[in-house]
């Protein structure tokens, strides 16, 4: 008799545990309008707001006069663990005739970058920052090697 009692109580317990689970899924099915968590990515592009700290890509900030703050000190190049940044410097001749090291080309290999933020931390003049773009897929890998300083840009006055 004890065996039968256990047998039927097992069945009862089993059915109860199963119906509990089914109640939850049914609840979600009934409330699916409210509960859904899907984001319709390409459609919500307009409303998609990324946090300001999101790290998508390194950019060199230029102001309205097409001037940047990079002195070409290569601190970022040294800080980068992957060799993502390559800085080519040149010598500017100031009006007084003094030679001064300046940035010629800021080469950035996006395909090597891991967005670790170490270059931004290392920069003494806050010339570079992380942009919030994240759609980086291209068909040609060479397109990911970018030149960050705009053509004709020069260093802002007073930045040492």
């Amino acid at each position: 008799m004890a065996f039968l009692k256990k047998y039927f109580s097992n069945i009862f317990q089993a059915i109860r545990s199963l119906t509990t689970g089914m109640r939850i899924t049914a609840g979600y099915a009934l409330r699916h309008g409210k509960e859904k968590i899907t984001q319709q990515y390409p459609d919500n592009k307009k409303t998609l707001v990324l946090p300001e700290r999101f790290r998508g890509e390194v950019v060199l900030t230029h102001d309205e006069n097409n001037e940047h703050a990079c002195t070409g000190c290569t601190a970022c190049e040294l800080a980068c663990p992957n060799g993502t940044i390559k800085i080519i410097t040149k010598f500017d001749v100031s009006p007084e005739g003094k030679k001064k090291k300046a940035l010629d080309t800021f080469i950035y290999h996006l395909e090597l970058c891991t967005m670790c933020n170490l270059c931004i931390e290392a920069c003494p003049t806050n010339a570079i920052r992380m942009a919030q773009t994240f759609e980086h897929s291209v068909f040609d890998r060479n397109k990911l090697t970018k030149k960050l300083n705009n053509p004709g840009s020069k260093i802002r006055e007073g930045v040492e």
């Binding site: 899924t25 979600y28 099915a29 699916h32 509960e35 859904k36 899907t38």
Partner: peptide, 10 residues
């Protein structure tokens, strides 16, 4: 559709 409703999907 049924699976999507139960799984918080569309």
């Amino acid at each position: 559709k049924v699976s999507a409703w139960m799984q918080l999907r569309l």
